[in-house]
Computed example of a mutant assay.
Amino acid sequence: MRAIPDIPVHLAGRPSSGGLVVPMITPATRDGLYLFGKITDLVQYQCLIRSLCQVCGQRLGRRAVMFARESDLFYGCTAEPAACPPCAAYSRRACPMLAARRSRYRASEHPALAGIPLAADQLLRQSAPAEPWYAVWIRDYDVIEHPARPGTLAASWQRIPPLCIRPLAATA
């Protein structure tokens, strides 16, 4: 049984589910079920445009962390908004993909989303082996349309070189 990481003090007021903090960007069903691993388009837009942390919702400081899949590195951008360093540290421990506790993507969509079409990249990931993840430490980013996902906004570090890019743990 995996240990659930302690919730940092700065996140104590956020909703939680199963002992984990629900990131600001995580959507919920009408019944209050949180859909971890999904992103709310409106909140994604707000986080990217207003430079807000995707977990706590506070304004990003002088440094932030973007979590990027290996395929994102090729494009120099990710659809995932950045996180402040304390939230990034918590996310690395709490998120099963970032912590490499899951070796594959979900085999099917959550039943609460039945009938809602999936984006092409989500269809390709179903049941696929998980890609390696990287922490991209940044000072700033540009908001662009993702080159591989038309109509999807992304945070880009192409014009503004990152402070560093570090691989996260290998998948289990």
Rank of each mutant, 00 (worst) to 15 (best):
M1T: 12
R2D: 15
R2E: 14
R2Y: 11
A3E: 09
A3C: 08
P5A: 03
P8A: 05
P8R: 02
V9R: 14
V9Q: 15
V9P: 15
V9I: 15
V9H: 12
V9Y: 05
A12C: 10
R14Y: 08
R14M: 10
S16D: 11
S16A: 13
S17L: 03
G19W: 13
P23F: 15
P23N: 12
M24L: 15
I25M: 06
T26C: 10
A28T: 13
R30T: 10
D31R: 15
G32K: 14
L33N: 06
L35S: 06
G37C: 01
G37T: 02
K38N: 11
I39M: 09
T40D: 09
Q44F: 04
Q44S: 06
Y45T: 14
Y45C: 08
L52H: 00
L52C: 01
L52D: 04
Q54C: 03
G57K: 02
Q58A: 10
R59V: 07
L60P: 00
G61E: 00
R62N: 05
R62E: 13
R63E: 05
V65Q: 01
M66R: 02
A68K: 03
S71I: 06
S71N: 11
L73T: 03
L73N: 01
G76W: 00
T78L: 02
A83R: 01
P86M: 05
C87V: 05
A88R: 01
A88M: 12
A89Y: 10
Y90F: 07
Y90H: 03
S91C: 13
S91M: 14
A94L: 12
C95L: 10
C95K: 11
L98E: 04
L98D: 08
A99V: 06
A100S: 13
R101Q: 14
R102Y: 13
R102E: 03
Y105S: 04
R106F: 11
R106W: 12
A107T: 14
E109K: 09
A112W: 01
A112T: 05
I116C: 03
I116Y: 08
I116V: 13
L118Q: 14
A120P: 06
Q122G: 04
Q122Y: 10
L123A: 08
L123I: 13
L123F: 05
R125Q: 11
R125A: 08
S127I: 02
S127E: 10
P129K: 12
A130W: 00
E131P: 07
W133P: 00
W133V: 03
W137R: 07
W137G: 06
Y141N: 05
Y141R: 14
D142V: 11
D142I: 12
V143L: 02
I144S: 06
P147G: 13
P150L: 05
P150Q: 04
P150R: 13
G151E: 13
G151F: 05
A154S: 07
A155N: 10
S156N: 07
S156E: 01
W157G: 05
Q158C: 15
Q158Y: 06
R159P: 10
P162Y: 04
P162M: 10
R166K: 15
P167N: 11
P167V: 11
P167G: 04
L168R: 02
A170D: 12
